[in-house]
Simulated scan of single mutants.
Amino acid sequence: MSEKEIKAVIFDLDDTLLSEYEFVVSGYRYVSVFLSRMIGVSAEEINDRLRELSKETYANAFNRLFDSYGVTYTAEELRSLIKAYQQHPANLTFYPDVYPTLRTLKDKGILTGIISDGDPQRQWNKINFAVAAMHSDNLSDNDDPKLASPDSWFDAIILNDEFGGESFRKPNPHGYKVIAEKLSVDPAEMIYVGDNPAKDFHISADLPVRTARIIRENGIYNDREYLDGIKETFRIERLTDLLDLI
């Protein structure tokens, strides 16, 4: 039986459409100003220490920062710090190959979407900032405000944590089922583009979704192992390579 025609291209967000590393760097720079007052050292030193602590893992970076300086902190202070980091005004842009890919997919009548994990407010901030920047960079002569909205470029956006927390994150197939229903397509008519071997490609074990892996420079998950050894259907060097698969 021949494979079904691709009717929808669904993207991961971090390190697929935009750089997670750039968000982290931007966030650390932003909160370092507040942390310098709490700890009593320069914001530059705080920023450098955070980046050093994060070389091994990003987990609990702020807790470990306080511990490294021997500074006590309350749970409320930590929550406020994390909130400031997640919601900071990041000057994010999509990778350069995103706009031409989305533009061509739209011209071809291919549906597009996003499935992403993580704090919903943080992820929405990233999407909104990046779409606005894409509009400014590529469509500055078009004053239609709708083109600066994510809805103009993505037919459905699924943030898995909105379903009820971390248990709904990939590789849980729930988000894929929801987006297929929203777009009125069969999972076999979708291709999912991601970067993280630990969760982005396992969906093909649960649903007939084809997958494509893109490896970005400074990608946080480039060295992860494949979950259950399940690999991508295709490997691409840039998003525009997708256009040859459709």
Score class of each variant (00 low, 15 high):
residue 76 E to Q: 12
residue 77 E to T: 00
residue 77 E to K: 00
residue 81 L to N: 05
residue 83 K to Q: 10
residue 87 Q to D: 15
residue 87 Q to K: 08
residue 89 P to V: 08
residue 91 N to W: 05
residue 93 T to F: 11
residue 93 T to K: 13
residue 98 V to C: 09
residue 99 Y to V: 03
residue 100 P to V: 09
residue 101 T to A: 07
residue 101 T to D: 09
residue 104 T to V: 08
residue 105 L to R: 01
residue 105 L to F: 02
residue 106 K to C: 10
residue 107 D to A: 15
residue 108 K to Q: 09
residue 113 G to H: 00
residue 114 I to W: 04
residue 115 I to T: 03
residue 116 S to T: 10
residue 116 S to L: 00
residue 120 P to Q: 02
residue 121 Q to L: 13
residue 122 R to I: 00
residue 126 K to R: 13
residue 128 N to I: 14
residue 133 A to C: 13
residue 134 M to P: 15
residue 134 M to G: 14
residue 135 H to I: 13
residue 135 H to F: 12
residue 136 S to E: 13
residue 140 S to D: 10
residue 140 S to L: 09
residue 141 D to I: 02
residue 142 N to H: 03
residue 143 D to T: 10
residue 145 P to V: 09
residue 149 S to D: 15
residue 151 D to M: 06
residue 153 W to Y: 15
residue 154 F to Q: 14
residue 154 F to A: 11
residue 156 A to T: 06
residue 158 I to V: 14
residue 158 I to F: 04
residue 159 L to K: 00
residue 159 L to W: 01
residue 159 L to N: 01
residue 162 E to G: 00
residue 163 F to V: 01
residue 163 F to A: 00
residue 166 E to D: 07
residue 167 S to E: 15
residue 170 K to V: 10
residue 173 P to D: 11
residue 174 H to D: 07
residue 175 G to W: 07
residue 175 G to I: 07
residue 177 K to D: 05
residue 178 V to F: 05
residue 179 I to Q: 05
residue 179 I to K: 07
residue 179 I to A: 05
residue 183 L to K: 07
residue 185 V to I: 05
